[in-house]
Design a protein around this nucleic acid. Structure first.
Length: 311
DNA sequence: ATGCCCAAAATATTTGGA
């Protein structure tokens, strides 16, 4: 019978298997701050109890260029689960051990040069799958799923939706076809009737109020009517867009171009979103954008978006 | 109407981003 012990100074507990305890086991000792947490230890199941699960999505724009900023962010903001986009790395080159040493389980779906998504989690993951169903020919790494095994299991999907510019054109056709596949996956997810979410860089500006200068985006693949309609079709299945469930009004953005001093003028767009199934929306505490990260050294052009779930 | 800036692969310039 497993023995459950509290982890000192945190909301975590650890279930220790027979024959292991915090004093005797080299690896279990990691849970008590003696050594760095070693989440790969098979003798322990780590659970978070009586506290919210904090999940963030973050388009990091290249893992190699973002190592310092990402590490600082994980240390300071400490997401339980981080869904990363644009790792721009193949799986073999992703510095997984660096993040494992910080206490994260690392699952990647990488690609050379561009795209690539990943999940970092302090909570055990099950049933990890890679790739958006619906097109076996699609080589682009834009989708990863896993079940976060906290007190209430949550199915999380991390996504990097195609940009689609220039529109119209083949890249835009690919975007719309990808969104059709997203719609199909979203429908299946809803039919499971479990807490689940789809989060990431949607490359969709949902409404005029989600851009500082909507007129400048009128014909862009991120804002043109066909794109917004495709996004709404997914929402209309029954998803809750977490940010707009908690915050109304303009001037809330998640991306600012590197060019032309966009950040300093708050000339941004809101394109990174959380879509929640009804069972997940019922757990929603808060949702916010960590915009101040954009003003730091060597930032990504995106900032993290967060949800807090009573799970 | 276009570039501004940035990352990656390659190693000078192109591709992709949004």
């Amino acid at each position: 019978m497993a023995k459950t012990v509290p982890e000192i100074g945190s909301a975590w507990t650890a279930d220790l298997q027979d024959g292991h305890d915090a004093d005797a086991c080299f690896i279990c000792a990691g849970f008590f701050g003696v050594r760095p947490v070693h989440v790969r230890c098979t003798t322990i199941t780590r659970r978070k109890t009586g506290a919210d699960v904090k999940i963030a999505t973050f388009n990091i724009n290249g893992i190699k260029a973002r190592m310092e900023a990402l590490t600082d962010w994980l240390t300071e903001s400490a997401p339980d689960v981080a869904l990363l986009q644009e790792i721009k790395s193949i799986d073999e080159n992703f510095p997984r051990e660096h993040f494992e040493d910080m206490g994260y389980i690392v699952e990647t779906h990488g690609q050379k040069s561009f795209n690539g998504v990943a999940i970092l989690s302090k909570i055990p993951l099950e049933d990890v799958t890679r790739g958006l169903p619906g097109d076996d020919e699609d080589e682009q790494a834009r989708w990863i799923e896993a079940t976060v095994m906290g007190d209430t299991p949550i199915r999380v999907c991390g996504l990097y939706l195609p940009n689609g510019n220039p529109a119209p054109g083949p890249k835009y056709d690919y975007k719309l076809a990808w969104m059709d596949r997203l719609h199909a996956r979203a429908k299946d997810l809803l039919n499971q009737e479990v807490p689940a979410l789809m989060a990431g860089d949607y490359n969709i500006i949902p409404q005029a109020e989600d851009a500082k200068r909507p007129d400048a985006w009128r014909d862009d693949a991120l804002f043109r009517m066909e794109s917004r309609e495709a996004f709404r079709r997914v929402l209309n299945l029954g998803f809750t867009e977490a940010f707009r469930a908690t915050t109304l009004g303009p001037e809330h953005y998640s991306f600012w171009d590197y060019q032309a001093g966009a950040w300093n003028r708050n000339d941004g767009i809101r394109i990174d979103h959380f879509l929640l199934t009804p069972q997940c929306a019922d757990l929603l505490g808060n949702c916010w954008i960590e915009s101040d990260l954009r003003g730091r050294d060597k930032p990504s052009d995106h900032v993290p978006v967060w949800v807090e779930l009573a799970a």
